[in-house]
Design a binder for these strands. Structure first.
Lengths: 110, 110
DNA sequence: TTATATACTTCGTGTGTCAAGGTATCTCTT
DNA sequence: AAGAGATACCTTGACACACGAAGTATATAA
């Protein structure tokens, strides 16, 4: 989409988990939601997105199931697990801490 | 040091440039300053640090010269170039933008 | 019928981080 | 005089995440 890319690295999982906190969703929709919420400033690359799903499922933080669409392409839905919710809380705290840390390191006066 | 690690990825260069905005410095000291400023929450691994220096010098954002220490280990000092200062301004803006973006994506209610 | 949107997947590559190892000098303690 | 610890730098190889590119398949709008 624009600038950002490497700066997000490491936050992908947190972002995905965050969206799943509300409700189950599937890859394509999750990405559209991200685009929407960031006013089209950001969108995950498909490969990144699906890699993250596999990683999160591997970690036991999400579970997946096929939707029962009668029409259109099949959708693989994801649910966040209790462990995933706990992980999200941790990751969010880490984000807050990291944010403060970086802010403390970057000088104001330019 | 603690938690953080992957979350910083991509901000290393910005942090180093930020410290060089004040004054010239050398690897070891830069790392100590980071540790100090973050209350020992964070410190770059040496390999990461020196890799970053090479990358930044390659990009023309910093220049290096040997200090004239009469005693103790030799020190390679780094100076930020005008291009480096311009880059820093950009990187800091990108950080602010990324920060807002991620904040907008992470739900409050847990 | 062609293009576009929806939807998922896999493979190979690149970049940044880091563990581990190395070199060398100085100071403080024993 | 020997040894430990701090200071200071450097290189190599491995790993993880992100991503470009390509492929599959269905539905709809032009």
């Amino acid at each position: 989409m624009s600038i950002t890319a490497d700066l997000i690295r490491g936050h992908t999982d947190t972002i995905i988990l965050s969206l799943l906190m509300h409700q189950d969703s599937y890859g394509y929709q999750i990405n559209k939601t991200i685009a929407e919420k960031t006013h089209n400033q950001y969108e995950l690359k498909e490969a990144t997105l699906y890699t993250a799903f596999r990683r999160l499922e591997q970690a036991g933080w999400i579970r997946s199931y096929w939707g029962d669409e009668q029409t259109g392409a099949r959708r693989r839905y994801y649910t966040i697990t209790p462990e995933g919710r706990a992980a999200y809380v941790r990751l969010k705290q880490e984000w807050e801490q990291t944010k403060r840390m970086i802010d403390g390191l970057l000088v104001e006066e330019v």
